[in-house]
Design a protein around this nucleic acid. Structure first.
Length: 426
DNA sequence: AGTCCACAGGAAGGGCAGGCGA
DNA sequence: TCGCCTGCCCTTCCTGTGGACT
């Protein structure tokens, strides 16, 4: 028999102590969490109705878009008498109210159509949504499903899916309006053949009439589609100009009145949000985001007033969240490349240098490196995402390459680097 | 003016997984 | 079960590019 202070006993004592500490720390954390939640419940929220500050909220009164609403309504009105309206192409930069106005007019149309003799169906598709309109198969399957047909996620020949879509369309016996939001993304992914077929669909249908509403952020989009599609799609065009600072202020004021409690918004907050958003192409979505996030940050600090300092913090937070989320959703090798670029620490680097370094990092992460061709595409994708800045340059007889740099704040790159380091044990 | 470099980027196709229909 | 079809990720092969160098 060993003495009281034998090694085994010491280990046992240590284990018991660790357990006691763990229990106490868990109990401590739980009680502090409970305190936090209780305090949160006790504090009065600065928000009256936070949903109003969300981008999915549809206000009854859409400010500064009366002209566009009226125009779109006039174009689509013939469908109430069973006639096919002209195709419409709606365009304007991000956050100018295109989708909001289109949905608003469509909702009103459906309301009135309930009492009209002819049948009306409206299909709304956001072509930028992943797994929805990134292939011909998926888009035609989505349209067919919206019309009530059953189409499997894969397995059928594309022609068969087209057939089901046409059959479902024919069965409607009325007017169908197809709204394709972010239509430029659709064309970039699958070309304009599908769009051509859609614009010609009325030639092949007997009892149903179809009208297309295309919505695009890209003002030059129509320049790179087939001329026949262009003339057909752009029978009518509605342009959404960016909001100016004053218009944004009115929109924000409207949302503040309904979204926040009285006297919560400090002086200069609305003006600052409006000014920041106006400098980014008059983006109302951005302005509302800034306001909401500023409110959330103030509430987190247990303050009952949103000040301009919180708007600055909100601006940083939105940018940081956007980048981190975008990177988190990237494939493994894109993340390793980004980690490589961030840590090369040379300001601007070239594709060849990045590739050499990436090969080492990929092996460290326990994976086989991809080919340079594939990496070239992944670098281009990161550039498209706005995470890095990559521009093609010629170095004369030393070749053509991309100059790559990270175009982000140092605290964001640090956060990304740590996140990727932990993930891949680099 | 011609050559050369180091890629960019298009096209074609392989391999795999998932799903359908006979 | 098997053949066929899809999407996705990737490789291989190839042509094109633009400016420094000769």
């Amino acid at each position: 028999m060993q003495g009281w202070w034998s090694i085994t006993t010491l280990f046992q004592v240590e284990k018991v102590l660790r357990l006691v500490i763990l229990i106490y720390s868990i109990r401590g954390t739980m009680s502090s969490l409970q305190d936090k939640f209780t305090k949160y419940l006790e504090n009065e929220s600065i928000f009256q109705n936070k949903d109003i500050l969300s981008n999915t909220y549809h206000p009854d009164d859409i400010l500064h878009r009366e002209e566009q609403i009226d125009e779109l309504a006039s174009i689509l009105a013939p469908c109430l008498k069973g006639n096919d309206p002209s195709n419409v192409f709606v365009y304007g930069t991000v956050g100018t109210g295109k989708t909001l106005v289109t949905k608003h007019v469509c909702d009103e149309l459906l309301n009135v159509a309930e009492t009209s003799p002819s049948s009306l169906d409206i299909i709304y598709i956001n072509c930028k949504m992943k797994k929805v309109a990134d292939t011909e198969y998926r888009l035609s399957a989505k349209l067919a499903r919206e019309l009530g047909a059953e189409v499997p996620a894969t397995g059928l020949p594309t022609d068969a899916v087209y057939d089901r879509f046409f059959e479902a369309m024919e069965e409607k016996e009325g007017v169908v309006i197809i709204v394709l939001d972010e239509i430029d993304a659709l064309v970039r992914k699958i070309g304009d053949d599908f769009l051509y077929n859609l614009t010609r669909i009325n030639d092949n249908l007997e009892s149903t009439k179809v009208s297309l509403v295309g919505i695009s952020n890209d003002l030059n989009f129509v320049d790179y589609i087939d001329a026949r599609v262009k003339s057909s799609l752009s029978e009518e065009e509605i342009i959404f100009p960016p909001y100016d600072g004053m218009e944004l202020k009115k929109i924000l004021k409207q949302r503040c009145e309904e979204g926040f409690n009285d006297d919560v918004i400090g002086s200069g907050v609305i003006s600052k949000c409006a000014a920041l958003a106006a400098s980014e192409h008059g983006d109302a979505r951005r302005a509302i985001d800034l306001l909401r996030v500023a409110g959330e940050l103030a509430e987190r600090d247990e303050k009952n007033k949103v000040t301009t300092e919180y708007v600055d913090q909100a601006q940083n937070k939105i940018e940081k969240d956007r980048v981190v989320e975008a990177v988190r959703n990237q494939p493994k090798h894109s993340q390793i490349i980004l980690y490589t670029i961030i840590n090369m620490d040379e300001g601007e680097v070239h594709t060849g240098d990045v590739y050499k370094e990436y090969q080492d990092q990929a092996r460290k992460a326990g994976t086989d490196p991809l080919t340079q061709r594939r990496i070239s595409d992944l670098i281009a994708e990161l550039d498209m995402l706005g995470v890095i800045n990559a521009r093609v340059v010629s170095k004369g007889r030393y070749g053509r390459t991309r100059k790559i740099s990270v175009d982000l704040d140092s605290h964001i790159t640090k956060k990304l680097s740590n996140m990727l380091e932990d993930k891949f044990y680099l």
